Simulated assay, not measured.
Amino acid sequence: MAGKSDSNSEFISTAQAARQLGLSLGAVQQMVESGTLAGWKTAGGHRRIRQDSVDALLAHARSPSAPMRSNRERLRVMVVEDDRLLQNIYRETFLTWSLPLDVHLMEHGLDALVEVGREPPDLLIADLRIPGIDGFEMIRRLRDNPLSSDIAIVVVSALGPKEIAAAGGLPEDITVYRKPIPFHELHGYVQAMISMRRRARHPG
Rank of each mutant, 00 (worst) to 15 (best):
R118I: 14
E81A: 04
P180I: 11
G39P: 15
G26Q: 11
I181M: 12
L86E: 13
R48K: 09
A166H: 00
G45C: 07
V77L: 11
D122G: 15
Q191G: 13
E10F: 10
Q51L: 15
V176R: 13
T36Y: 08
P131L: 01
R72W: 02
R48E: 03
Q29N: 08
I130K: 02
V28I: 01
S157W: 05
V80T: 06
R91V: 04
G117P: 10
L21M: 09
A43M: 04
D52Y: 09
R91D: 13
D83N: 15
I133M: 09
R48D: 01
T14I: 11
P120D: 06
R62A: 15
A126Q: 12
V114W: 05
A158R: 13
H108M: 04
H46Y: 04
E10S: 03
V114H: 08
R201D: 03
M196F: 11
V114R: 12
R118V: 07
A2D: 09
R201W: 03
V190K: 00
G109R: 02
K4M: 13
I164G: 05
Q20D: 15
T175S: 15
R69Y: 00
D127C: 11
V114Y: 06
G45L: 09
S53C: 12
S70C: 03
M193A: 11
I89C: 02
K162M: 01
A59N: 02
S34D: 04
